[in-house]
Amino acid sequence: MDNATEPKKLLIVEDEPTLSELLQDYFQASNYQTHIIARGDEVIAWLEENKTDAIILDLMLPGLDGLEVCKLIRQRWDIPILITTAKVEEIDRLLGLELGADDYICKPYSPREVVARVKTVLRRVQSSTQEIELTIPIELRPQKCQVVICGKTIDLTATETALLELLMSEPGRIFSRNLIMDRIYKDYRIVSERTIDSHIKKLRKKLNQDSDQQEIIHSVYGVGYKYEPN
């Protein structure tokens, strides 16, 4: 089967059987392949053995709560995550997005709305990837700690390479400083937000050595940084 026509795969993490089965019916009717997991502590093991295009993740789960699951996923994968929950307090909303959720859906919800939101997130991911291919010629060479931009090879430090690779993994997505620290420093060393800002400043300077080079790493005031070459 042609990859372009293959059904999208979706992981539904929800401990209410009636709700998870209802979502499964709606997504299968929309030509998605689905898998259901009812416990938070079973998600990572499943992802290690299987691939999915997106995850619908409930917050209140047995074994391990959804926010912890979201954090663990983001440490290893860039799969789109849509959090669902009946907890509507603003702090939960912000924390869910801070940990890397791509969308946040409050219960009770319409299954049709959830299907529409998943489609929107997947379209955004696909269009962002295509946009990068069409706008600026840039190639990251992680093994050599180099980036080739507009035909010019630029040497990077290991940290700068990891930082640029992270930002390029999801064009247009805003990465908070805390998330960047969690993803870049695997040895759990203590670093500050100023350290991240310093790396970003140096990386930008290297990427914009030519005065007519457009900015590709953007600051989002009070939130973090994103890779977007337009």
Rank of each mutant, 00 (worst) to 15 (best):
P80H: 01
R93Y: 14
A158D: 14
R183Q: 06
I73V: 06
H199S: 11
E6C: 10
V13Q: 02
E89A: 08
D65W: 07
Q24S: 13
R117V: 00
R177S: 14
I81T: 05
E98L: 08
D2Y: 09
L94Y: 07
Q146E: 13
T85K: 01
G40Y: 01
D103G: 08
S110R: 09
S110N: 11
I44M: 13
F175D: 03
L179D: 02
H218N: 07
E21S: 13
E68K: 12
L163H: 01
A4K: 15
V147A: 07
R112K: 15
G172K: 04
R123K: 14
L67K: 03
I136T: 15
S128T: 08
L164G: 00
T129R: 15
K152S: 10
I81S: 05
E170I: 12
D155G: 09
R74Y: 00
D212V: 10
E68D: 12
V88I: 11
P62Y: 03
V69F: 01
A158H: 14
G96A: 04
R204K: 15
L122I: 00
R76V: 09
R117L: 02
N3C: 06
E215D: 08
E98C: 05
I37A: 10
A101T: 02
V191T: 12
I36L: 06
E165L: 07
P171Q: 05
P7I: 05
